[in-house]
Design a protein around this nucleic acid. Structure first.
Length: 229
DNA sequence: CCAACGTTTCCTGGTT
DNA sequence: AAACCAGGAAACGTTG
């Protein structure tokens, strides 16, 4: 239970963080600079260049050669048998001496990483996490999960949806149309409204996902829902 | 291509 | 009167 709760919390936070920036999964795929099917991204991507070991520097060179189609024959690898700190202190001239025209490319790539370093490391981390969640099929796409995650998130939901009694799983829809808009956004459907959302919720009564509460805009999680305690 | 699933859309009629 | 609620019926998109 603890494990599931932690995973659910992580999922909802990461997904919410992401859906606010990215509208489509394909977008996320496009942002990634590594092939998810071949495993995790190289370690150096999550570290600032200043902290790279000789090995990281080597990996980075290899990556640059592959990704930017640089000819390794022009690169004097002995010049790059250095620590990250030393690599960062190298001037553009040093790079040119070590790898000619490729050196200038490498120099600008490195400077780019250094300037965007922190943020890139962060987004990279979340992209990676996001991918893992998608691969594990943990992106909740069902309406009741969407509501549950919204209720569970510490994020300010601007009083759109609130617990009435979390122990019993009773919650209240505060701003019905705003909620419908959020759901519509998630499903890329701008024609969504509370009339239709509530119809979908009423379908849940027969499957035990929700139980009826005879109060306007109040719903209750049923025995076939989980993760809201 | 099929079928099941989870809605989405539309609707009629009733309640607060 | 506006906003909700109850479900039937059928269309729809995704997934297995």
């Amino acid at each position: 239970t603890m494990y599931i709760t932690v995973i659910l919390f992580l999922c909802s936070s990461v997904i919410r963080l992401y859906t606010s920036h990215v509208t489509e999964i394909s977008c996320i795929k496009g942002c990634l600079n590594f092939d998810p099917s071949s495993g995790i991204p190289p370690l150096w991507t999550s570290l600032p260049p200043e902290h790279w070991t000789r090995h990281h520097v080597c990996d980075w060179l290899q990556y640059c050669c592959d990704s930017y189609k640089l000819d390794a024959a022009y690169i004097s690898f002995s010049h790059f048998n250095v620590l990250g700190v030393q690599l960062c202190s190298m001037t553009k001239e040093d790079f040119t001496e070590a790898a000619g025209i490729c050196g200038q490319h490498l120099y600008s790539i490195l400077q780019d990483i250094r300037t965007n370093g922190e943020a890139e490391g962060d987004t990279e981390f979340f992209e990676c996490l996001m991918w893992i969640l998608i691969i594990l099929g943990m992106q909740s796409s069902h309406l009741w999960e969407f509501l549950r995650d919204l209720l569970l998130s510490s994020e300010d939901t601007s009083g759109i949806l609130d617990w009435e009694d979390q122990e019993q799983g009773i919650f209240r829809v505060v701003k019905s149309e705003a909620l419908a808009q959020m759901w519509g956004k998630r499903k890329h459907n701008d024609r969504m409204n509370y009339e239709k959302l509530s119809r979908a919720l009423r379908h849940y009564y027969k499957t035990g996902i929700l139980e009826r509460v005879d109060r306007r805009l109040v719903y209750k999680f049923g025995k076939n829902s989980y993760g809201w305690h």
